[in-house]
Design a binder for these strands. Structure first.
Length: 475
RNA sequence: GGUCCCAUCGUCUAACGGUUAGGACGCCAGGUUUUCAUCCUGGUAAUCCGGGUUCGAUUCCCGGUGGGAUCACCA
């Protein structure tokens, strides 16, 4: 019987979860679910100094927002220190690792020497030459020390990557990596390998930046006589400058995308297609659909630029196809954020206002300035009222005629169109100034839609008349 | 610099070794329209270079070039 597939997403709580991490989590999730396996969250919190308050909460919250919740409780490495130490000792017994008492100063000097000699910086195995007794004496005296991996010379390490195929590296190019730090905490390499084995992870799916350290991990697996999991190294997410996406090059925190009003569904859909392609012309996928079609043979090898324009497009698409009942509550916070007070307006009206802008929104955060005119008197230049090359006086007269007409009738599309025809006026010379009078904007929804919305207010018709009147005075 | 990874339109990407190199975003033009947006139609634009292998290379091999990642008591 084949072993159950188990993947893990293993971020460290050193900052807000970024979009690259989100995609890694997603692929881990997709692969596990596709094969009816498990996907778990593991928190790699072995660096006390770099832990950022709130980062853990952010990771968990964001994953929840995207429905990428861990199967079972998350694993915290900081709670498993004994396990790592136990295994580190085992490596020492097996002579696959050794104690190192070198000072930071010596390591630094060594590095400088090597750099000057144009050698790659590498630990020189100085402490490996220490005798057993000497080591014990130093340990007894509580001399600060670390535990290093004893990398053998002249060996070929090879592993098969699910996206890159076979990768091989000589052990001569691998440093004697620190496994346990002087504070007793394990480094990534040790904790990672021990946990992946202990948790029975079958597939390690992570970013391509980990390829160079994978041989170290292979060395550890073989030192422990453990079978290594399968590896899949994902292509990097790149900035416009083709560099690895990072905080330095703009805001990459998932949180900030959410705050700008990108929908989780849209962002997930977008990020799923970065570095992977289902080889159909379909572009829109739900999480469930992604699970169905996901596979590693369709994952690309080369990095993918994170293109905001396409994200905007896909986000707009999701916004457009959303039911207004669903969109409305999501958009309310952004309206409030724009300083617009909506307490005294009927919900029916507010929903209609949002619905009017629905097809124009790329991000929810754009809503505020788009609908402001519904709640505040618009400010605009009188010049804007004059349609194309129309005559100012004609516009003025048209608005006056329209105002008179509307005083005695309902402001419906049917009525106004009939009025235009009956009065032998030009459509644009009535509708354009009417629209501007109502909105003060160069671009907006049409005047009929806007009036149909205003009319939902008790004083809606009066607002319309007032604004037309004001436009006339402005001219 | 050492090691490793990668290479199709500006971007995301398709193409059993045989296609007019396809789709999407963006951009441009046209249509619908009072404006914008939506929607529809059309257009623009790519196989990094050089050798091989082959009847035939985007595709396979080698070299070059270019880009990237990584070389911590960080993950």
């Amino acid at each position: 019987m084949p072993q159950e597939i188990k993947t893990r997403f293993a971020p460290s709580p050193t900052g807000l979860l970024h979009v690259g991490g989100l995609r890694t989590a997603l692929y881990n999730f997709l692969f596990a679910k596709k094969h009816n396996g498990q996907y778990v969250l593991r928190i790699e919190d072995t660096d006390k100094a770099r832990t950022v308050p709130g980062a853990l909460e952010n990771i968990i919250q964001v994953l929840k927002d995207f429905h990428l919740n861990s199967d079972g409780e998350p694993v915290f490495q900081s709670k498993r220190l004994d396990l790592y130490l136990k295994h580190a000792n085992e490596l020492i017994q097996k002579k696959a690792a050794y104690y190192c008492f070198c000072s930071q100063q010596r390591l630094e000097d060594l590095r400088k020497q090597q750099e000057a000699a144009k050698q790659p910086p590498r630990y020189d195995k100085f402490c490996l030459k220490l005798g057993e007794e000497e080591v014990q004496k130093k340990l007894q005296a509580s001399e600060p020390h670390v535990i290093r991996l004893n990398v053998p010379a002249n060996q070929q390490i090879r592993f098969t990557d699910l996206v890159h195929g076979e990768i091989k590296i000589s052990t001569n190019d691998i440093d004697d990596q620190v496994l346990v730090k002087s504070d007793g905490y394990p480094t990534y390499h040790l904790a990672n390998v021990v946990d992946d084995h202990d948790m029975e992870i079958t597939h390690v799916i992570r970013g391509e930046e980990w390829i160079p350290s994978t041989p170290k991990h292979m060395l550890l697996y073989s030192a422990f006589s453990w079978e290594s999991p399968q590896f899949a190294h994902l292509p990097l997410l790149l900035s416009k400058t083709k560099k690895k996406l990072s905080k330095r090059e703009g805001d990459v925190a998932v949180q900030s995308f959410l705050e700008q009003g990108y929908l989780p569904e849209a962002l997930l859909n977008f990020v799923a297609l970065l570095g992977w392609n289902p080889k159909t012309e379909q572009e829109i996928f739900s999480l469930t659909e992604l699970v169905e079609v996901f596979s590693f043979d369709k994952v690309n090898k080369s990095g993918a630029v994170f293109d905001l324009e396409k994200l905007d497009w896909i986000n707009g698409l999701y916004i457009r196809k959303m039911d207004i009942k669903e969109l409305f509550p999501r958009v309310v916070p952004y309206i409030l954020q724009a300083g617009i007070k909506i307490d005294n307006y009927p919900k029916e009206f507010l929903e209609k206002v949002v619905a009017l802008e629905q097809e124009r929104l790329k991000k929810l955060s754009e809503i505020g300035d788009r609908v402001r005119y519904f709640f505040e008197e618009p400010k605009y230049d009188a010049q804007l009222l004059i349609w194309k090359k129309a005559d100012k006086n004609v516009i003025n007269q048209n608005l006056q005629k329209l105002l008179e007409f509307l005083k005695s009738t309902e402001p419906t599309e049917e009525n106004i169109k009939k009025f235009i025809v009956d009065s032998d006026l030009k459509t644009g010379e009535v509708l354009w100034p009417l629209r501007v009078a109502l909105t003060g904007l160069e671009a907006s929804p049409g005047p009929f839609e806007i009036m149909n919305t205003f009319v939902l207010l008790p004083n809606g018709k009066q607002i319309i008349l007032d604004r037309i009147n004001r436009a006339i005075k402005l001219l």
